[in-house]
C-alpha cells in the first residue's frame, strides 16, 4: 500500500510541474499590470517602475520563475496583493469554508440524486424516469449563480425562511473555536447548539445551489449503472431462483450499482470545489472560490498561482484517496506494481 502511494505521488509529479509552469505563464500573460493597478491615481511612469521593483516584477520572467519555484520549495506561495497576506495563510484560512460548503452540497446531491436514479432505473421508460431526466436536466441547465439568486429571492427575500446570505455565520453568533474548521462541527464539539444551527442555516441555500449542479452526473450514473446491473446474469439467476424482489434490488443490485458511483464521487467533489467560485460570490462566502475570482480580476499573480497549485494538489490527493477506497471496497481492483 505504501509503495503504491509513493508510486502514485511520483507519477503525479510531472503533472504538478506542468501545472506550475502553465499557471505561471498564463497568470503573467494576463492583461493587467499589478503595479499600475496599485499605483492607481498616482500612476506615473516612475511610480509604476518603483512599485514594480518593490513587487519584484521588473525582473525578466525566467528570473521571476526561478525565484517563484525556489519559494515554492520552501512552502512559500508568495504574498497576495489583494489581501496583503501570504497566499498560504489565505488559502488555509479559506479552505475549510469551501470544503464545508462543498461537502454539504455533495451530501445534498447524493441524497437527492441516488434515490432518484435508482427509482428511474427500476422503472425505465415510466413517468418516474422522465421526471428524473427532466429534473436533472433542468438543474444542470440553469447557471448556478442564477439558481442561487433565485433561491435568495424566494426563500430569503420573499418568504424570509432562510437566514441572510451574509457568509458562514450571521453577525451575532460567536465564531466556534477552530478544530476542524467546519463551523457546524466545531460548534457541536464546543456544545454550542445555537451556533451550530445558525451555521447550518447559512449553509442550506448555497449548498442546494451548488448541489443542484452535481445532480445530473450522479443521477445519470446511478441510473445507468443500476440498469446495467439489473440486466446482468447474476440478477437473472437470482430472479430465476425466486428470491424476493427486495433482496434482488437491494442486496444484489444496489450494492453492485453503487461501485461506479463511489468512483466518480471524488471527481464530483473536486468539480464542485471548482464550481464554488460563483456561488461564493453570491452568498458572500469567504472561501477559496471568491478568493480566486478577486485574484483574477486584479491580476494578483501569487494568489492565482497559489490557488491553481493547491487545486492541483487537492485533485491528486482526492484521486489517490478514491483509488485506495476503491481497492478496499472492491477486491477485484488492483493497481499492479
Amino acid at each position: 500500500m505504501i509503495k503504491l502511494i509513493a508510486k502514485r505521488f511520483l507519477s503525479a509529479l510531472p503533472s504538478l510541474i506542468g501545472v506550475i509552469i502553465v499557471t505561471f505563464v498564463i497568470s503573467h500573460s494576463l492583461p493587467g499590470d499589478p503595479a499600475a493597478y496599485f499605483a492607481g491615481p498616482s500612476a506615473t511612469a516612475e511610480s509604476i517602475a518603483e512599485t514594480k521593483a518593490r513587487l519584484g516584477l521588473d525582473q525578466p520572467l525566467p528570473v521571476q520563475f526561478v525565484a517563484y519555484v525556489g519559494d515554492l520549495m520552501q512552502g512559500d506561495l508568495g504574498r497576495s496583493f489583494n489581501s496583503g497576506q501570504p497566499v498560504l495563510t489565505d488559502l488555509i484560512r479559506r479552505l475549510p469554508a469551501s470544503f464545508e460548503l462543498t461537502l454539504y452540497a455533495l451530501v445534498f446531491a447524493i441524497v437527492v440524486a441516488v434515490p432518484l436514479g435508482l427509482w428511474a432505473a427500476v422503472n425505465p421508460g415510466s413517468w418516474i424516469d422522465h421526471l428524473c431526466r427532466g429534473t436533472v436536466t433542468a438543474a444542470a441547465a440553469f447557471p448556478s449563480f442564477f439558481t442561487a439568486l433565485v433561491l435568495i429571492f424566494v426563500f430569503y427575500y420573499k418568504l424570509g425562511w432562510a437566514p441572510s446570505p451574509i457568509g458562514r455565520l450571521a453577525i451575532y453568533f460567536p465564531l466556534p473555536p477552530t478544530i476542524t474548521g467546519f463551523f457546524t462541527i466545531d460548534a457541536l464539539i464546543a456544545g454550542d447548539f445555537a451556533t451550530a444551527r445558525a451555521a447550518l442555516g447559512q449553509l442550506i441555500l448555497p449548498a442546494i445551489s451548488l448541489g443542484l449542479f452535481a445532480l445530473a452526473p450522479l443521477a445519470r450514473m446511478t441510473r445507468a449503472s443500476m440498469i446495467g446491473v439489473l440486466g446482468s446474469d447474476f440478477i437473472t439467476t437470482a430472479k430465476a431462483g425466486g428470491l424476493p424482489r427486495r433482496t434482488i434490488l437491494w442486496t444484489y443490485g444496489f450494492r453492485n450499482a453503487l461501485l461506479p458511483v463511489v468512483n466518480i464521487l471524488g471527481m464530483i467533489f473536486s468539480f464542485l470545489l471548482g464550481a464554488n467560485v460563483l456561488i461564493e460570490q453570491v452568498f458572500g462566502w469567504p472561501g477559496i472560490g471568491s478568493y480566486a475570482v478577486e485574484a483574477v480580476l486584479t491580476s494578483d499573480y501569487a494568489a492565482i498561482q497559489g490557488f491553481v497549485v493547491m487545486m492541483a494538489i487537492l485533485y491528486i490527493l482526492l484521486n489517490l484517496g478514491v483509488d485506495i477506497l476503491n481497492m478496499i471496497v472492491d477486491p477485484r481492483v488492483r493497481y499492479d506494481d
Binding site: 435568495i152 430569503y156 424570509g160 441572510s164 446570505p165 451574509i166 457568509g167 460570490q281 478577486e294
Partner: peptide, 18 residues
C-alpha cells in the same frame, strides 16, 4: 462585511439584516 454580489447586498438591506 464584504459581499461581492450587488443583488445580495440589496436584499440584505431591504430585509433589514444590513
Amino acid at each position: 462585511r464584504q459581499i461581492a454580489s450587488a443583488g445580495t447586498r440589496r436584499a440584505l438591506l431591504e430585509s433589514g439584516d444590513a
